[in-house]
């Protein structure tokens, strides 16, 4: 989290699980000075309409991300590997449950 040079308290990223077993998804960000405040602020701002049952809070500056320049090198190599998908395979007609 960035230090409090700016008088608005450090920035945190909010992740919410909508219901038990669901994936935990990014919802937005909030400002808070400590972990407990971060949790409560996220609760008060992002779950006012029953949006979640579980919260994760991560200091924004702890996030590591790719950039658009990385896109080709990182992700294009996955384009030509169709054998990772079931549709790649031929199944003789009449065979079921596979």
């Amino acid at each position: 989290m960035s230090e409090n040079k700016n008088d608005q308290l450090p920035l945190w990223e909010v992740f919410i699980q909508k219901s038990n077993g669901a994936p935990i998804k990014h919802a937005g960000s909030i400002h808070a000075s400590d972990k407990e405040m971060a949790l409560q602020n996220a609760r008060d701002i992002y779950t006012r309409r029953n949006e979640g049952r579980l919260l994760w809070l991560v200091p924004s500056n702890a996030i590591v991300a790719t950039v658009i320049e990385d896109e080709a090198d990182f992700f294009d190599p996955a384009d030509d590997k169709p054998y990772r998908h079931p549709s790649f395979y031929e199944v003789p007609e009449g065979v079921t449950n596979i």
């Binding site: 608005q8 308290l9 400002h31 808070a32 405040m37 409560q40 602020n41 008060d44 701002i45 006012r48």
Partner: peptide, 11 residues
Amino acid sequence: PILEEDLAMVN
């Protein structure tokens, strides 16, 4: 005193 707390107090 801060936007987040404003919302918390309204809750």
